[in-house]
């Protein structure tokens, strides 16, 4: 009997998504236990038509934690040039975090929410992808703006006033 697959429910949003940037992304995808690559390149499994996205931008790696029967997923940054925001952390090249039950991810203007639904299969997993008409992550954008503004509003004091 075939075991049920773990499913990554992935919601995507980008302000310019009406320009075909998600055109190459299928609604449903089944993948084996190798890394699933998200990026702009020809061999990416989830392919974004966005120049700001690296050819290999992010990977999702399935693995088993000791004692668990369902797959866990590790999100790793493959882009050398840009960082990725994941659940409040800004990750850079080769940094990685395990996905939580619901993970919020922002990269190159793309908002992605991933919900993990556990299944017993150790052979493959599925991705179900939907495209949202409205923003998915409000808080992260506000945090990013605040951080930027804080930097702008609090410049280094001039050298002569330091004493």
């Amino acid at each position: 009997m075939e075991r049920s697959m773990s499913v990554l429910q992935i919601a995507l949003y980008h302000p310019n998504q009406d320009r075909g940037i998600f055109e190459d992304i299928p609604h449903h995808l089944e993948h084996d236990t190798t890394h699933l690559v998200i990026g702009r390149g020809q061999n990416a499994h989830l392919k974004f038509r966005l120049p700001g996205v690296s050819r290999h931008h992010i990977s999702l790696e399935p693995y088993l934690e000791k004692g668990n029967v369902c797959l866990t997923f590790c999100l790793k940054i493959l882009s050398r040039s840009s960082s990725v925001w994941v659940n409040g952390l800004t990750l850079k090249y080769l940094e990685q975090v395990p996905l939580t039950a619901v993970s919020k991810v922002i990269f190159s203007g793309v908002q992605m929410v991933i919900r993990v639904e556990g299944g017993a299969s150790k052979e493959k997993f599925a991705c179900c992808i939907r495209f949202s008409c409205s923003p998915l992550i409000y808080r992260a954008k506000a945090e990013e703006t605040d951080e930027y503004e804080a930097i702008q509003e609090d410049p280094e004091p001039p050298q002569e006033t330091r004493e």
Partner: peptide, 11 residues
């Protein structure tokens, strides 16, 4: 790995 046993897909 040392004395830690890894099963299939453990890392």
């Amino acid at each position: 790995v040392g004395n830690i046993e890894l099963g299939y897909l453990n890392k």
